[in-house]
Design a protein around this nucleic acid. Structure first.
Length: 509
RNA sequence: GGUCCGUUCGUCUAGGGGUUAGGACGCAAGAUUUUCAUUCUUGUAACACGGGUUCGAUUCCCGUACGGACUACCA
């Protein structure tokens, strides 16, 4: 298979959206599958939108998912620098080259003039002003102005942008790996700004120059870039790089769980679901978010879920390890239409992962979550606990939420069960059972079960009369693992203490 | 408004000129588990619409509708 060089090129303007993670994932998968490179490039050419900490967030998020770049800022690689703000001279040089070859031109129109022009066109009933072949000569640029005037403006250090000179009457055909052939008429395309007045490149210039210099073979990015891909192809042509132009694949969007439109950060707060990988502390509460990690997702489950959102292998397999995804992945099998974010499905993946993790690994995994609640137990204890609980949880915090009674005394007794099952006249019998269990000492599940069974037989009692009382007495709830397993893990002293207290509480009700 | 993209169960999707249109999530019922959950079985539910092409279209073509993206000196 042809070795691939792909890049994930986010803009550090805030927390990385989960859709961005999926884009990174698909890039990563293709790189690993072919033994190629996965490159992280930071597209920070807009100083006004730069958010400190965002780059670190991106790196942390990728690390959490296990999608480590082979090249990028802080990751090494010999095609750097990988931060676009560090590459400014390169872009200026290439923009200049385009001016010299007549593929681009200087534009002296100020933002105010452009705004005024747009307003005027609107007032005339024209819908949108476009800086293009048809309007170029009405504007103030090196195409419309005499050479002497252009030189004078340049000498006077007049601010300018450099714009792409889009050729007239051509058809640009894009071969998208996902969408097939897409055609654009150049007459519909505007003269995009390549270099801004502040000397920084726009996305379009920086992207093409970097992808070329970094020898990118495949551009896998969001669907929002499809309309400007024609400009990108034109740029490759202008530079004479068309023969090494990367292949394009435009990914469908991730949509809101309900309603219209794409998934947004507001959906997280509105629906109580995570839309970011990790928590993000913004300036305000509205700008702060929890993430998949804080929700208690396993990153492997989240990756699995994300991978299947818009892609499928064509088989009926749904649970994949990263390695399996790497082998199974293919760009051609990515869907064309937007995929709705289905949180129920995400939960299912997590539940499946937790249930399939072996007890020792799971114990290590949940340790920090339990320590946050002051839990200190041996690894052996935690391992057994994990095994007993893993088929009863969806997220990591559920281990504490549903199984806190393994570590601390019962907070609340299920009153309905007590009212139904507790008969005051049976207190002497239960006290006798308690004494029997204490005398038995620490033992295993089977012995406990046998002991209680023979006690019931001796006294003519049924399971329905004894077990619910025992269960609620020890755990407070009717939900949970086999009661004898819980008792075995807790130990005879602890069980006795709990039963003693529970019978007192029950008697008062 | 213009340009471009899209449309199979509620959701994620498979499929593809003749199929009982398959799977998964969800939901419902049942079985197992004397709790809960897991697991298993079963059920529920879809080709946006209208024209073509064709012996035959959900599948191919064209429209329409609907949804979406783009239309910045943002990415």
């Amino acid at each position: 298979m042809q070795k691939v060089r792909v890049r994930f090129a986010p803009s550090p303007t805030g927390a990385l959206h989960i859709g961005g993670v999926r884009t990174a994932l698909y890039n990563y998968l293709l790189a690993r599958q072919t033994g190629g490179q996965f490159i992280l490039r930071i597209e920070d050419t807009d100083q006004t939108r730069y958010v400190p900490g965002a780059e670190q967030y991106i790196k942390d998020a990728l690390a959490w998912f296990g999608l480590t770049p082979d090249e990028g800022p802080g990751y090494g690689g010999d095609k750097g620098p990988y931060r676009q703000s560090d590459r400014q001279p390169i872009y200026q040089e290439y923009a200049q080259a385009l001016i010299e070859s007549g593929k681009a031109f200087y534009a002296f129109d100020t933002p105010e003039e452009l705004d005024a022009k747009r307003e005027a066109e609107k007032a005339d009933g024209n819908h949108n002003f476009r800086y293009d072949v048809t309007t170029r000569m009405e504007m103030r640029n090196s195409e419309s102005l005499p050479a002497s005037e252009v030189a004078a403006l340049l000498d006077a250090n007049t601010p300018y942008t450099i714009r792409l000179k889009v050729p007239a009457d051509e058809v640009v055909t894009i071969h998208d790996l996902i969408r097939g052939e897409v055609q654009f008429q150049t007459n519909e395309l505007d003269d995009k700004v390549l270099l801004k007045a502040d000397g920084m490149p726009t996305y379009h210039l920086a992207n093409i120059v970097d992808d070329h210099l970094m020898e990118i073979t495949h551009v896998i990015r969001g669907e929002e870039w499809l309309p400007s891909t024609a400009h990108h192809v034109l740029l490759y042509r202008a530079f004479g790089w068309e023969d090494t132009m990367p292949q394009f694949a435009h990914l469908p969007l991730i949509l809101k769980p309900t309603g219209k439109g794409k998934l947004s950060k507001r959906d997280g707060a509105a629906l109580g679901i995570p839309v970011f990988p990790l928590a993000w502390n913004g300036d305000t509460e509205e700008e702060s978010f929890t993430g998949f990690r804080e929700f208690g997702f396993d990153p492997k489950a989240a990756v699995n879920f994300l991978a299947l959102l818009g892609w499928n292998p064509g088989t009926e397999q749904e649970i994949f390890t990263l390695e399996e995804l790497i082998t199974a992945f293919s760009v051609e099998k990515i869907g064309k239409s937007g995929a709705r974010f289905d949180f129920d499905k995400a939960k299912w993946f997590n539940q499946q992962y937790i249930a399939q993790t072996d007890d020792a690994a799971l114990a290590a995994q949940i340790k920090p979550w339990l320590q946050a609640h002051g839990v200190e137990r041996t690894d052996a204890f935690l391992r057994t606990f994990a095994g007993l609980m893993k088929e009863r949880v969806v997220f990591y915090p559920d281990f504490w939420k549903n199984g806190y009674y393994f570590f601390t005394e019962v907070k609340e007794y299920d009153e309905k069960t007590i009212q139904k099952k507790w008969k005051p006249e049976m207190l002497p019998l239960f006290e006798e059972l308690r004494a029997t269990l204490l005398a038995l000492g620490d033992t295993d599940e089977a012995t406990l079960e046998a002991t209680v069974k023979s006690f019931m037989e001796a006294n003519g009692l049924g399971f329905g009369q004894v077990l619910p009382v025992l269960r609620v007495g020890v755990t407070g709830t009717m939900q949970g693992p086999a009661i004898f397993a819980v008792m075995a893990l807790l130990g005879s002293q602890e069980v006795d203490k709990r039963l003693k207290r529970a019978f007192e509480v029950f008697s008062r009700l």
